[in-house]
Design a protein around this nucleic acid. Structure first.
Length: 205
DNA sequence: GCGACAG
DNA sequence: ATCTTGTCGC
């Protein structure tokens, strides 16, 4: 009997999470934005600020972002059906990147959407140039994620499973959430929210 | 040993 | 991640 399904097929609420860093100080700010997948409208937002307690070390990235991100996530009133993180999930040296941590910690299905590859390679020739083109990311013989082109002629994003969702389903949602730009709206919104919060600006829309 | 290395 | 000038294209 399948105890592990494909994950959320038609999620209504998807959340994007991101963290912004100050240059001179060690201040950090997290932003979580919940979108309605039907309209891509913002349903809810939550933020948290703090101090970076862990340095940026490739491979240990999650330990740097998790504290402030979890704080922001705990302030959420709604319960998103999917969490999209800025970074990798399974596509990690130890097969456990940020998206895996956040999914397990919150119990919410999650996936990672990274702007640059970390581990794993794909055949550029196997990736079409149009929106929707995909090519598996393979590392040490295993498929750890997928390069996904979200816009015609634009660099692909790198999607990998976090928790409670399969790769195909994750890619479908990422593509649907990126109708106009390379990055999904969840990521773009969370990025702006975290930055505005860090800089003390009034959140833009 | 050397280079590479999510954000 | 953040900084940062000009440049290309719709």
């Amino acid at each position: 009997m399948d105890r592990l399904g494909p994950g959320p097929i038609r999620p209504r609420l998807v959340a994007g999470v991101d963290v912004a860093y100050a240059e001179g100080s060690d201040r950090v700010a997290a932003g979580v934005v919940v979108l309605d997948t039907a309209t891509l409208d913002v349903v809810e937002q939550a933020t948290a600020q703090g101090v970076a307690t862990f340095p940026y070390v490739p491979g240990l990235f999650a330990f740097r972002e998790i504290p402030v991100l979890v704080e922001a996530l705990n302030r959420l009133e709604s319960v998103p059906e999917l969490l999209l993180c800025d970074g990798h999930g399974l596509a990690h040296p130890r097969r456990f990147g940020l998206a895996c941590h956040l999914g397990l910690l919150t119990g919410i299905p999650s996936a990672g959407v990274a702007k640059t590859p970390f581990v794993g390679r794909y055949d550029p020739a196997a990736l079409g140039s149009g929106r929707g083109a995909q090519a598996d990311l393979v590392d040490d013989g295993e498929t750890v994620g997928r390069a996904l082109r979200t816009q015609d002629g634009v660099k692909p994003v790198y999607v990998s499973v976090g928790h409670g969702i399969d790769l195909d389903t994750a890619c479908r949602h990422v593509l649907a959430l990126a109708p106009s730009y390379r990055l999904p709206e969840t990521t773009r919104r969370a990025d702006r929210l975290s930055r505005d919060t860090l800089l003390g600006r009034s959140p833009r829309r």
